[in-house]
Design a protein around this nucleic acid. Sequence first.
DNA 1: TCAAGTCTGCAATATATGGTACAAAACACA
DNA 2: TGTGTTTTGTACCATATATTGCAGACTTGA
Lengths: 303, 303
Amino acid sequence: MNLPARPDATGAEKEPLLTVADRVHKLLDRLTPAEHKAARVLLDNYPLIGLESLGKVAARAKVSHPTVLRFVNKLGYDGYPAFQSALRTELKSRLQSPLSKKTKHDLRGDAPDFLQNFADAICSNVQQGIGSLPRQQFESVLAMLADPSQSIYLLGGRITDAIAQYFYMHLRVLRSGVNQITGPSISWPDYLVDLDSTKRLIVFDVRRYQPDVIQFAQEAARRDCHVVLFTDQWLSPIASVAKDVFIAHIDVPSNWDSMSAMMAQVEALIAALNYRDWPRLEPRMQEHEAVRMHYQQIMKPPS
Amino acid sequence: MNLPARPDATGAEKEPLLTVADRVHKLLDRLTPAEHKAARVLLDNYPLIGLESLGKVAARAKVSHPTVLRFVNKLGYDGYPAFQSALRTELKSRLQSPLSKKTKHDLRGDAPDFLQNFADAICSNVQQGIGSLPRQQFESVLAMLADPSQSIYLLGGRITDAIAQYFYMHLRVLRSGVNQITGPSISWPDYLVDLDSTKRLIVFDVRRYQPDVIQFAQEAARRDCHVVLFTDQWLSPIASVAKDVFIAHIDVPSNWDSMSAMMAQVEALIAALNYRDWPRLEPRMQEHEAVRMHYQQIMKPPS
DNA sequence: TCAAGTCTGCAATATATGGTACAAAACACA
DNA sequence: TGTGTTTTGTACCATATATTGCAGACTTGA
């Protein structure tokens, strides 16, 4: 699925396609002797030396600080920090895809496969989102979900509402006392009356953080309601009032964010809850299944 | 979170081999709340965030500079530069071993546990689901989604309805003529009147295939409506009447199925659609954004 | 409720770092 | 050898960054 050359409307897209090393190679012969020394040191210790300070690099190359700086400017970066930033982003993508053939693709001008990149990015997000779960927090939320005496309220934003609903549908089967807050936000305050220290609010909020969701969560927290937040790596403002925060990366090579990692976290919670409390849950789930089957029967017109 | 008896290897600890992440995990529980936030930010963006400046990390974690510094000191490093230096050395060795094997395991020194298995299973599903997309079919569905003259109807089952909603929320922004079929299934037949050969039905159905969904899709197909199906590897009965079928694996080590791979497919479609038709979509999306912002403004009570 | 202790951000400070101006050095060419 | 140009390092400055002290905020336990 090599999508055709993308209309360059967003700009700033071309720069990252060239790695720092690429740029160095390209103008290696046009460099002055002292700058050449700096370039060699960079290439020989690529890329980590570039993350050291300007002075360290200069010392290693046995040239003066300004020489290194001039070299970096010639590479096309607006200052040493910009250069370091470019290195970091490069390093980031290299770390994410262990089988890093990316550079080769780029060098050849080969468009890397769009779908494959996309899948890789999502996997990376999923691994990150599940790997970084602090176990203690995970356990405590699990205990909370397992305790039927603690009523649970679920709320999501415009996009994340689907995740909230997904979670809701599962929790409904597993326990009682689960509520989904839906409808126009003007009607949400009705729920606030119920939200006190004996209740739990699970809220989803990702970037372009939604004012009405934030306000609701803050108000709930003010009423001593235990707030559990699912958010992205840039943290919703709700994070400061939430007792538990689950972070999932949502960035993928797209104009849209990806909720897959967040979904995975939710699914992990559901799976763990099941695993943990199976003896207690089994009868309830079987009954659930039986009731649903029976209901389907009586709804079906006799044919 | 090793749900089955945790191995909890108590081997002799090799001090010098402790990675930064190891240290963080070790004293995660002993950290103060603000320090905990810093730790989370570090782990969630590990390790590159640690190479940013103290201030950047503090800002990201929404705590003060000194808090981050105190956290770093607790880790056992003599100042922030020392901490960064440790990260660089660690990164260096990781970059040298080409197949950076199972980072998560190494970082924790743990046996693979429940969560890790879960994440691996999901990733495998995602890769499979996206890798196996026939490109021609992908392209044709893409063209269909891009054509505003073809009205689209979305339908999901009990669990997959959340995915349908998720897709709907995105498509709504990208184009007009998108409808979500919701509510009790008894009311769905109303929609059938509209479904003819000029309309497209996108239906989600996974195992325990839902009779009402199946029946609706079959009836739509009989009326010459082009049906696109998202299903699992065991194929919903709808597959036989659908013009396009997307298959996602849904099995994970859990009593519940995982919709993550299906979600990833949907997100890939959205991303590709964006990528492909960006020039045409951009004005619409910007207007969408502007309208939403403006609406938020006028809804906000003057304070 | 109060008092002891802990935690945390603000502000001040010291230091490191990046950036610039300029002059010495090296070079090219007559 | 001299002159104009390029290259390079020194010295300086401005800013960013790390570090420390302290006081207010918060928690804890009686």
